[in-house]
Design a protein around this nucleic acid. Structure first.
Length: 798
DNA sequence: TGATCTCTGCATCAG
DNA sequence: GCAGAGATCA
């Protein structure tokens, strides 16, 4: 997609797009279907505002869904008009972080507050539960409840009044304490980054005025996925004469589970009287086939604005559905297709995306890609910054910036072991509580803490001294923010490779970082371990150092680095240049597009994924929209796959096909599955069972895959049903692979073009092939030379 | 105190 | 299949 240098910003836009770009004043709602060019409208509108001098670039705010999208937006605006790089663009979180870095002290937080990620938050909740003697509840549950309350702007007092049930009372007990401790530790969690600015704006109108008068034009992308708190922020910032431009699509609302409200779109006009509404309904991305399929499934959802998404791209490749015996076969099938498409030069690796519902599914694809030696990148899952060694390193860094950050302190105090164990910490903590000190302050005064042995006191002294040295050394690496011109040598001083120099000599940020981990003994300990895993960890730390160096070369501070790390999204890892297959969850694929898309794991309870507690139709609708998002990522080619057997939690589990597959009209898709009739049947059962209350779950039979072939009677029945008659089944094998002949063994299910389905009775060598004896349905037994017989294995069947 | 081992519980989506 | 908790031993 290339934006041309055009004097006319409106050239190349369709009528609806033009209108939206031109409408710069007052509240505007742009309902933009998938692939309808909303990003184009956003960029052009902002460029238009800047170019017409309606505002300075820095008076234009664009809230995007990822920081990466923000960067791209700025880049594109710069291409069209001058000063585009000065437009303020970022996610809600990163934008509000600016506000908070300036005024956090007003709310009683230190300037250098830490950002706690959800792992930190859960730890904190766990601590509180322990202190309250309520360890029966899961920290995860409590934390997510608190998070939800915060996003709904419900404060602890209000909640406490309505809390009745034991769980609710536990939440009500933890919530205020959690907030209190965050503050004591000088930390904010992700939700605080949204709700604290709200409090700031409400309580200090002058501060609100600073920002709301600065940002004269506000743009919000993906409005359907904003929550109440984010909406309130927008309302406050937009002020009484809102120049607020919101873009969204209710069909793509996929974050209900974390508090997003589609009503922020539906009720936009009520909340902002005088709203002008525009619709983008022409899709420029996908073929008609793909849109038909997408529309068919999403139109079954209950709460939805009727719309009419269309495309001029008629024809194209019909989407395919492919059912495989096992999840491993599924991965193999995807590899096969990738191989064929790339080998023929039809597609590059980077044109291909493999999408899945949950991160756990990525492993098999990863293994298969590695085995096939196809380049790939994973855009979701356990990222770099959540690796243990990186978290440890970051904890050291965070502690240097914010001594109150007890979570980090506790994390690294035994990494490596330094003679300070649980009992010592307990005593320190008691002392700290008594004298109203932070844990790190108590350590400084360890000699005054009762009951500590000299060994422990010494250990504390050594550690606190180290910490002080590191802090001092850190200051030398940071260019003073006001006059930072000279420090260009940041990347260049890597010449000295002596690891054990004192902190004085390393004046670069990465040198400092390396030194901290060296002096603390962290690196030494890893080196001593000498095993494969430890080497990997050391390599990762090396990557951390070089990324710090890169950051420092751009005059970035450690704090900024940590912020970026904390707020980085999965998509920020996306490297559009690299020619590699992309793997990601559907959530992470939001906003992206690819010529060829695999949507995998289309089984009941994989996708849609049912949760134990709330299996109501509302959730199914969100899964449905998620499916819609998944398939509308594709330009030309769409392949849906599912497996009959999947390993779940290490156990082989029978899966039924996704109910979504049943919503796809026959003419919109090609069934490449081996057993469509059976598929449809189990699919129907699955669809029905979805509506049943939790507890009555089906399809959880567990048995080893090897026993599969013993399942013959069922097969016989299924293939004897009148409506399938065998003909439909044979039509399904759309392409026989003329690769290697499948290895068969007695008990395997096979299918023959003429004789239908059967079971292998005997396998014996015959010349340069094998002779297979097959007992076909109806009792006929045939001896066939496999080389000529074109027997198709039917590995797995319900 | 800390290393090692066993076991249990648990398992979406994400900034 | 894995991480974290708890038990055990040096």
């Amino acid at each position: 997609m290339n934006i041309q240098f055009s004097t006319d910003l409106f050239a190349g836009l369709n009528d609806a797009q033009k209108e939206a770009v031109a409408c710069t004043e007052g509240p505007v709602l742009l309902l933009a279907g998938a692939g309808s060019g909303k990003t184009r409208v956003l960029t052009h509108r902002i460029a238009h505002i800047v170019k017409e001098k309606l505002a300075q670039p820095w008076q234009v705010l664009a809230v995007t869904f990822t920081n990466k999208a923000a960067g791209e937006l700025k880049g594109r605006v710069s291409q069209i008009t001058e000063g585009g790089d000065k437009v303020v663009a970022g996610t809600f979180h990163s934008t509000m972080l600016r506000v908070l870095r300036r005024d956090a002290e007003t709310l009683g937080y230190p300037r250098d507050f830490s950002i706690f990620d959800s792992d930190d938050s859960k730890r904190l909740v766990k601590q509180i539960l322990k202190d309250h003697g309520e360890e029966g509840f899961r920290p995860r549950t409590i934390h997510s409840a608190i998070s939800k309350l915060k996003n709904d702007l419900i404060d602890p007092d209000t909640y406490s009044k309505s809390a009745k049930m034991p769980l609710e009372r536990a939440i009500a007990g933890v919530y205020p304490e959690y907030q209190r401790r965050l503050k004591v530790l000088g930390g904010m969690d992700f939700d605080d980054l949204i709700i604290l600015p709200i409090r700031l704006f409400r309580e200090y109108p002058a501060i609100l005025n600073t920002w709301s008068s600065r940002w004269r034009y506000i743009h919000v992308d993906e409005m359907q996925d904003t929550n109440l708190a984010q909406f309130e922020l927008l309302r406050l910032l937009a002020g009484p004469k809102p120049n607020l431009f919101a873009v969204g699509d209710d069909d793509q609302s996929i974050y209900g589970w974390r508090g997003a409200r589609v009503d922020n779109i539906f009720q936009f006009s009520d909340n902002f009287p005088g709203t002008q509404v525009f619709r983008l309904e022409q899709n420029y991305r996908s073929t008609q086939h793909i849109l038909d399929l997408a529309n068919a499934v999403v139109s079954k959802s209950n709460q939805r604005e009727a719309k009419n998404l269309w495309t001029a791209r008629k024809g194209g490749i019909l989407p395919q559905i492919h059912g495989l015996a096992t999840d491993i076969d599924e991965a193999r099938e995807v590899m096969d297709r990738i191989g064929r498409a790339t080998l023929s030069g039809k597609l590059a690796f980077k044109d291909i995306a493999i999408l899945y519902r949950t991160n756990a599914q990525s492993r098999l694809f990863e293994d298969a890609l590695r085995a096939a030696r196809y380049p790939y990148q994973i855009l979701s899952g356990v990222g770099f910054y959540s690796r243990k060694e990186i978290r440890d390193a970051v904890a050291y860094f965070r502690l240097c910036l914010n001594p109150l950050d007890e979570l980090s302190l506790r994390r690294i105090i035994t990494e490596p072991p330094r003679g300070i164990g649980a009992t010592t910490l307990q005593k320190l903590q008691a002392f700290a509580n008594e004298h109203d000190l932070a844990l790190s302050e108590a350590m400084v005064k360890a000699d005054r803490v009762g009951g500590l042995g000299t060994r422990a006191v010494n250990a504390c002294r050594i550690f606190t001294q180290q910490l002080a040295t590191w802090k001092a050394a850190l200051l030398k690496t940071q260019p003073a923010r006001s006059d930072d011109n000279g420090e260009k040598s940041a990347t260049e001083s890597k010449t000295e490779s002596e690891p054990n120099t004192s902190s004085e000599k390393k004046s670069t940020l990465e040198g400092w970082a390396e030194n901290v981990l060296e002096e603390s003994g962290y690196l030494g300990r890893l080196r001593d371990e000498k095993d494969f895993e430890a080497q990997g960890r050391l390599d990762n730390l090396d990557s951390l150092f070089s990324s710090l160096a890169e950051h420092a070369a751009l005059n970035g501070t450690l704090q900024e680095y940590l912020e970026q790390a904390a707020l980085a999204s999965d998509q920020d890892k996306y490297d559009p240049g690299a020619d590699s297959v992309r793997l990601m969850t559907i959530h992470a694929a939001k906003g992206l597009e690819f010529p060829c898309v695999f949507v995998t794991g289309l089984e009941d309870n994989t996708f849609p994924l049912r949760s134990m507690e709330d299996a109501d139709s509302h959730d199914l609708d969100e899964e449905r929209r998620l499916f819609y998002v998944a398939v509308t990522r594709a330009h030309d080619e769409l392949i849906l796959t599912y497996a009959h057997t999947r390993r779940v939690w290490g156990q082989f589990t029978e899966m039924g096909p996704s109910p979504f597959l049943l919503d796809i009209p026959k003419e919109s898709v090609e069934w490449a599955s081996l057993h469509p009739t059976a598929t449809m049947k189990t699919g129907l059962q699955a669809a029905r069972s979805f509506q049943q209350p939790a507890g009555s779950r089906v399809g959880q039979m567990v048995r080893p895959v090897r026993q599969k072939s013993a399942d013959l009677p069922k097969l016989g029945k299924a293939s004897a049903t009148p409506e399938n008659g065998g003909s439909s089944a044979s039509a399904q094998i759309s392409h026989t692979n003329d690769e290697d002949i499948p290895a068969l063994r007695a008990g395997d299910l096979v299918k023959h073009d003429e004789f239908g389905q059967g079971i292998v009775v005997k396998v014996e060598p015959y010349k340069d092939s094998v002779r297979v004896e097959v007992e076909f349905d109806g009792g006929k037994t045939k001896k066939l030379i496999q080389k000529f017989a074109r027997l198709q294995p039917v590995k797995d069947f319900d």
